[in-house]
Simulated scan of single mutants.
Amino acid sequence: MGNYKLVSDYRNNKDLRASFNELAINSFEIDFRGWYNKGYWNDKYIPYSFVDGGKVIANASINKISVVIKGKTYNGIQIGTVMTDHRYRSKGLAKQLMWHILQLYKDSCDFIYLFANKSVLDFYPKFGFTRIDESEYSLNLEKSSIKRKMDTRLKKLTIEKDLALLENFAKNRYINSMILDVKHNEALLMFYFTIVFSEVIFYIDDLETIVLMEHEEETLHVYDVISLNQQNIEAVLENIIFESTKKVVFHYTPASLIEGMEVITMPDDDDALFVLSDTPLLNGNFKFPITSHC
């Protein structure tokens, strides 16, 4: 095995940051530059990387995150952006980075968790992680009394024109659910605003609410609902469904069940949740907000 250098927390190192970004683009087609350049990469997101010849060749990052579970706030560490340059695979670099992170944080947080795809489902149990299946919350509109509001004022937002509004809502958002949610998550939410969901940001003027959403034939995917105050989800839906919409899928945990809502445990091999904790914290029906995945 080569003598590679372990580095971390280098967001202000131009060369290493550029190399990290290049590896992220090659691995996930994700470009972090816009997020960093706007000042959203803060000290909660820390990469741990092996470097060879000044180039980042393997990485595992952590994000310090406050997680609300059944009304109580826990200090969580989420591991993400686990990637290795294809020329350096099968050398155990990801394994070393994982052990390093676990040794650093296992005694200073309430739990550690991550999301994994089907190619590494057997990898994380080796470190003591347990897989927990999340739930899918969906609404069958044929079993609901919710109807489209005809005079809705729905505006599409853009990073270029509405950045100040997005930053304010990310910083001061109301927690959607006491069952499971995250808070003080503005940096990661701005990542989703600027990179992942930049084309599907909408604003309901009458409710002063931002909705990340996308229609797929007769199904409406609601990725997140961001407001400065508590919102009635039925009022939100009245403003965003189409006449053709038959089903709504929520990519987070709603605050409560409403008429026509269905909840089922939904194993997902492409985005499987793994948790490491001394005591079981997560049970029953829940779904981490997709905008909290790092």
Results as ranks from 00 to 15, higher is better:
residue 112 I to N: 05
residue 28 F to A: 03
residue 64 K to M: 15
residue 282 L to N: 07
residue 197 F to M: 06
residue 212 L to K: 05
residue 161 K to H: 08
residue 290 I to T: 13
residue 31 D to N: 13
residue 29 E to C: 07
residue 124 Y to K: 08
residue 25 I to T: 07
residue 60 A to H: 03
residue 56 V to H: 10
residue 22 E to Q: 12
residue 40 Y to V: 14
residue 107 D to W: 09
residue 173 R to I: 00
residue 281 L to D: 10
residue 140 N to I: 03
residue 128 G to C: 09
residue 136 E to L: 13
residue 46 I to Q: 11
residue 199 E to C: 00
residue 294 C to T: 11
residue 63 N to P: 07
residue 134 E to S: 11
residue 223 Y to K: 08
residue 46 I to F: 12
residue 132 I to V: 14
residue 92 G to K: 13
residue 157 L to V: 00
residue 107 D to T: 04
residue 222 V to P: 00
residue 177 S to K: 03
residue 4 Y to Q: 02
residue 110 D to P: 03
residue 242 F to L: 01
residue 116 A to I: 07
residue 191 F to T: 05
residue 96 Q to K: 15
residue 2 G to C: 13
residue 95 K to Y: 12
residue 284 G to K: 02
residue 133 D to R: 05
residue 25 I to D: 10
residue 266 M to W: 15
residue 287 K to D: 04
residue 144 S to C: 05
residue 194 T to C: 08
residue 245 T to N: 00
residue 293 H to L: 04
residue 239 N to R: 01
residue 104 L to R: 15
residue 202 F to H: 04
residue 228 L to G: 06
residue 123 F to P: 06
residue 242 F to I: 01
residue 30 I to H: 01
residue 26 N to W: 07
residue 217 E to P: 08
residue 199 E to I: 00
residue 58 A to R: 08
residue 161 K to M: 01
residue 34 G to P: 07
residue 138 S to H: 08
residue 125 P to L: 14
residue 47 P to T: 15
residue 38 K to R: 13
residue 198 S to I: 05
residue 203 Y to R: 00
residue 36 Y to P: 06
residue 198 S to G: 00
residue 238 E to P: 00
residue 238 E to R: 09
residue 96 Q to N: 14
residue 212 L to F: 04
residue 172 N to I: 04
residue 107 D to H: 09
residue 36 Y to I: 14
residue 11 R to N: 13
residue 25 I to E: 11
residue 85 D to Q: 02
residue 169 F to G: 03
residue 24 A to M: 14
residue 121 L to N: 09
residue 234 E to P: 00
residue 164 A to K: 12
residue 51 V to K: 14
residue 136 E to G: 11
residue 183 K to G: 09
residue 278 D to R: 11
residue 286 F to Y: 10
residue 104 L to A: 14
residue 175 I to N: 03
residue 14 K to C: 13
residue 276 L to W: 08
residue 175 I to M: 04
residue 275 V to L: 10
residue 191 F to S: 08
residue 49 S to I: 08
residue 150 M to N: 02
residue 78 Q to P: 00
residue 179 I to H: 01
residue 186 E to C: 11
residue 76 G to F: 05
residue 105 Y to F: 10
residue 11 R to L: 15
residue 94 A to R: 12
residue 218 E to M: 14
residue 193 F to R: 02
residue 133 D to K: 12
residue 35 W to F: 15
residue 137 Y to R: 10
residue 56 V to K: 02
residue 195 I to M: 04
residue 151 D to W: 05
residue 88 Y to V: 10
residue 270 D to A: 14
residue 222 V to R: 03
residue 225 V to I: 07
residue 25 I to Y: 02
residue 219 T to L: 04
residue 210 I to S: 02
residue 74 Y to R: 12
residue 203 Y to T: 02
residue 42 N to A: 15
residue 35 W to Y: 13
residue 104 L to C: 13
residue 20 F to L: 12
residue 195 I to A: 01
